[in-house]
């Protein structure tokens, strides 16, 4: 057996895990089916340091013992122990084999192409990436279009302006393969499924 998990730094998860997980799952479906909108996630979990409420709620609700979670190096051991304890998911240090990944500091975000993107037969065997950003807004910024968006929508993520659009274009092009992204900012959540086209103008 592995070493004992140190519980001393672990905070409480959802007070009612069943109902809360289902509510968060519902929010995540909404976010992916209406990509141009910001969705607020209610959560009473005590998120570990550096992890926003929405990102924490997603990672409490979605992973289980069959999915591997990768956390960017800037997240503490306590954050890893927290999700390990509450969901039972194995933690991996190799982002290329993760099913769920969480990045906070944008400089630590690996290339989107280096995550698992599934195969043409099993596009669902792909990673879901959660990026915690300091600022997230709709109505200005990138032009996004695709299923779930009437005409077009605007999404502004200043932290990701540099390299993200080009990488996203490559991710979108690989459909049905590719990864899905959740952008989170505190309690706010915005879905970016692989079907979305994103342009900078």
């Amino acid at each position: 057996m592995g070493a004992c998990l140190d519980l001393s730094a672990i905070g409480p998860g959802f007070s009612d895990p069943d109902m809360a997980s289902q509510a968060v799952f519902r929010r995540s479906l909404e976010a992916l089916s209406r990509p141009g909108s910001l969705i607020e996630v209610d959560s009473d979990a005590a998120a570990p340091a550096g992890v926003g409420a929405a990102a924490c709620a997603l990672l409490l609700a979605l992973p289980d013992q069959d999915t591997r979670l990768w956390l960017a190096p800037s997240f503490s051991e306590e954050a890893a122990a927290y999700f390990r304890f509450h969901t039972g998911c194995p933690i991996t240090s190799v982002h290329g084999e993760a099913d769920f990944a969480l990045a906070g500091d944008v400089t630590e975000l690996p290339l989107l192409q280096s995550f698992r993107s599934g195969s043409d037969e099993y596009p669902d065997h792909s990673a879901t990436l959660i990026v915690e950003v300091p600022h997230l807004a709709i109505g200005s910024g990138w032009r996004i279009a695709g299923p779930g968006i009437r005409n077009e929508a605007r999404l502004s993520v200043p932290a990701l302006e540099k390299h993200f659009p080009a990488q996203w274009a490559a991710n979108h092009k690989r459909f049905p393969r590719g990864i899905d992204v959740f952008l989170t900012c505190g309690a706010l959540l915005c879905g970016l499924p692989r079907t979305i086209q994103l342009s900078e103008d």
């Binding site: 905070g11 998860g13 007070s15 895990p17 304890f85 509450h86």
Partner: peptide
Amino acid sequence: LVWLRNPQ
């Protein structure tokens, strides 16, 4: 006491 994990 504070619950880390409610009885389940």
